[in-house]
Amino acid sequence: MGVSVDDWFVLEVLPLEAALERYLRRNWRSVDEIADLRQEVYARVYRAAQTRLPEHTRALVFATARNLIVDHVRRERVVSIETVMDIDALPVFTEAETDSAFTSRSELRALQSELDKMPARTRDIVILRKIYGYSQSETANQLGVSEPTVERHVGRGMRQLADALGRVLNPGRKTTTSRSRKEQGS
């Protein structure tokens, strides 16, 4: 059970990250809180999916995001005036995006450009680990740094790459929803 919800989450929900992030940015004033909101949306949809995998992932994700924003606005009166102009006007869907054929190439491009933006040491370590396939101790030896240092930079690189991938727009995956439902069985 846990495994199949994980698969659903990785295959169906994560590809919506860029669209979700755009939606949150458009409807929430504080940029700093976007990552937290996104995380909360993820936790909520994951929890919901544990009972029953949803038929329309995209609809669930955006309805959840909308409800979350509404909840926040109601709970924290302070931000209500400026945070959201008009709660009821919040759309539930965003437009379907881009062309699926380019997705994997644009992901590679996003990864590459993120790699270029990393601090030198993090970049070197990610390159040795991911492109040259060195082990942690080999990487440490090659660069003359300690293994804990390598590990710390791997963690950091991982977070940066996840953010970069989250900015790549993916196509709506309406078809995959039905496929993975079949795989689930009941």
């Binding site: 994560l14 992901e107 590679l108 990864l111 991911k130 492109i131 991982m158 790459l161 996840a162 991938l165």
Partner: peptide, 9 residues
Amino acid sequence: SAWQSADRL
């Protein structure tokens, strides 16, 4: 998932 995708690098 991101770290695994990074194998594509």
